[in-house]
Design a protein around this nucleic acid. Structure first.
Length: 290
DNA sequence: GACGCGTGGAG
DNA sequence: TCTCCAAGCGT
């Protein structure tokens, strides 16, 4: 199989989106912290919804210490409707850890990054590579799909695993800056061209060497795991509770989503939010964590 | 390893 | 309308 890196690099130089965290001014102003915050927000939330919140967040909390010195409740409020509010809590906790263990500087070492709350294989390497320019494999869902198709000849990637990191390492060029570009390019290609539903193979720089394409674009069995139904779910109830808590300093416990159709589910939602640290109850009131 | 976890835009 | 899905993580 021919090398994937050269066409990826050429394509990226021509087609990369002008996103805030890729601009020199952004790096100069916010450094690793800006990249870290953007990566937290981008975990499962589309780029277009992240951009305005990222700007507001970094203006308010331009350093990890600034966030760490503020209350978790403020982080959850500022998270607004980005979704998965546990990420706001984790980001705040990571800021505390950075302040207390790393002198307020986002670490560069992947092991140190992995030790921070809310940071896993993807985010740790994304920060090391995109903020600090080091050479590591960065593997997200886009990259996994590109590799599944181009290298393995499968329509959908299988379950995530260590093999993904090894596979990505296998296509990284020796040059450190080029390796960073290939990481970004694989993600960008997956986001813009080699998409989950309707890939645009006509404009794909890898089409001529794509194992999946060359095999006739077969559909493989292991399609990605389907999301549970949202309507009527506990998640929906949690979302409704949190929406109320964000809007007020505190809410009387018995008034929290009082007209929710399923009272047992309402109680379950409140209890689980407390268990997650996203809410606190005292004196008959419910509020975001102080 | 599979599951639970928000929200809103696109097709 | 409804289904799919979007730069994951912790358990």
């Amino acid at each position: 199989m021919p090398e994937l890196a050269p066409p990826l690099i050429r394509w990226y130089r021509q087609n990369a989106r002008d996103l805030p965290w890729r601009r020199a001014e952004f790096r100069a102003r916010y450094g690793g912290w800006g990249v870290l915050v953007s990566e937290f927000m981008l975990q499962q939330t589309p780029v277009n919804r992240v951009i305005p919140h990222l700007d507001a967040w970094l203006t308010r909390w331009p350093t990890p210490t600034a966030l760490a010195d503020d209350a978790p409740a403020e982080a959850v409020r500022a998270w607004s409707t980005l979704g998965y509010p546990r990420r706001a809590l984790w980001l705040h906790q990571a800021a505390v850890e950075i302040r207390d263990r790393h002198d307020g500087v986002v670490p560069r070492d992947v092991g140190a990054l992995l030790a921070l709350t809310g940071i896993g294989d993807y985010t740790a390497r994304a920060v090391a590579v995109f903020a600090y320019g080091d050479r590591h494999p960065v593997v997200d869902t886009n990259t996994r799909r590109v590799l599944a198709r181009a290298v393995l000849g499968q329509a959908h990637p299988g379950a995530p695993g260590r093999r993904d990191l090894d596979r990505m390492s296998g296509i990284l060029p020796a040059s450190v800056p080029d390796a960073a570009v290939v990481n970004a390019a694989a993600m960008e290609l997956g986001a813009l061209v080699c998409t989950a539903r309707t890939p645009d193979c006509d404009v794909c720089p890898l089409a001529h060497m794509c194992a999946w394409r060359l095999a006739g674009s077969p559909d493989n069995a292991d399609a990605p795991r389907r999301q549970a139904r949202y309507e009527g779910s506990d998640r929906q109830a949690r979302g409704a509770v949190l929406r109320e808590l964000r809007a007020a300093a505190s809410v009387p416990l018995d008034e929290v989503i009082a007209d929710w159709p399923d009272p047992a589910q309402r109680d379950r939602a409140i209890d689980s939010l407390i268990a997650d640290g996203l809410a606190e109850a005292d004196d008959g009131m419910l509020r975001l964590p102080a």
